[in-house]
Design a protein around this nucleic acid. Sequence first.
DNA 1: ACCACCATGTAACAGGTTACATGATTAA
DNA 2: TTAATCATGTAACCTGTTACATGGTGGT
Lengths: 180, 180
Amino acid sequence: MAAGSSLSATEAALLALLTRGEMSGYDLQRAAEQAAGFFWAPTKSRIYAVLPQLVDRGFATSREVQQTGRPNKQLYRISKAGRAAVQRWLEEPPVFEPERAPILLKLYFGELVAPETLVSHVQHIRREAAELQERLQTQSNDRDFYAELTFKHTLEWLRTLGRWAAAAEHELRNGGPATD
Amino acid sequence: MAAGSSLSATEAALLALLTRGEMSGYDLQRAAEQAAGFFWAPTKSRIYAVLPQLVDRGFATSREVQQTGRPNKQLYRISKAGRAAVQRWLEEPPVFEPERAPILLKLYFGELVAPETLVSHVQHIRREAAELQERLQTQSNDRDFYAELTFKHTLEWLRTLGRWAAAAEHELRNGGPATD
DNA sequence: ACCACCATGTAACAGGTTACATGATTAA
DNA sequence: TTAATCATGTAACCTGTTACATGGTGGT
């Protein structure tokens, strides 16, 4: 009982994963990583901190499974109140937030460092974007409709980032600042 | 003295702004908002918390300016150690981090809610992206070379987001999940 | 009369990371 | 024998937000 207000993204996501069946903290981390790892991945310490809170708030129940040779397992099951809470969370309009990529800040203050440094920063980002893109594209294709939508978003974002980085690199090389 | 390790993004950015001249916390917030507000904007409480730390670590000095009718003003000036620290920070390769937009999580678990809800979520994001895009495009054009690079990044990102949202909306309407 | 601007800060809370701590089983 | 997998958690720390608190000046 004592279902206080609304959920954080992590709480909601864990509950949403629990609608697929009873799971342990360990299971949940693997499920999250495997399912949505490219855009959302809580740390285990966060997961282990959140789960008992969900139980306290009446959104899930837990039962202990005896094991030998390793810590006993806590299995969590979503409750009716839990289902209602995820649903409410899913129905709230999503917050729109602009990107806050660290590269932007470094670039913004570019006049304080050597241009070659910036070129290598931009290259670095471009490389990383390309790597992730490739990794995602070589992954299995059996995503459901909704997973596919998020997947496409990430791919588009990576493509745009790559294109921007290439253009930025070019501008930093020729042209560059104060070209006169 | 006592310059401990490296800087957080906020610390670095504040120091970077201070290379433009002596400023108060209040000035810094305005400068940040005006300069880089579309991709980076610290809250004032964070600014007021960070500045004394920068002084403690020897990266800046402060002097008090007496005023009447309002709190005395603290003016901060970057030190040599401060300049060196920002430079080091700027030279560290930027961290690449995939997007963690809330909309993705809601969409990912789309099977748990009515499709129309998802349509309106996607519309919401699309609208917000368009608004910000317009706001940015109608702003003054006197950005320097580096600011322009970051500006372009944000614009490209907004365009991509808008296009993706439009496509997602379309797919959610016709087609949709389990179309058979 | 009201609002924006100037100018400082504190307190409480929320969310998240990294490192520490333990230890058996199983496959390469 | 080495690494990955299973399985739990705690503690310290960092970053950030929101709300609270104060109050004069100057423009519409």
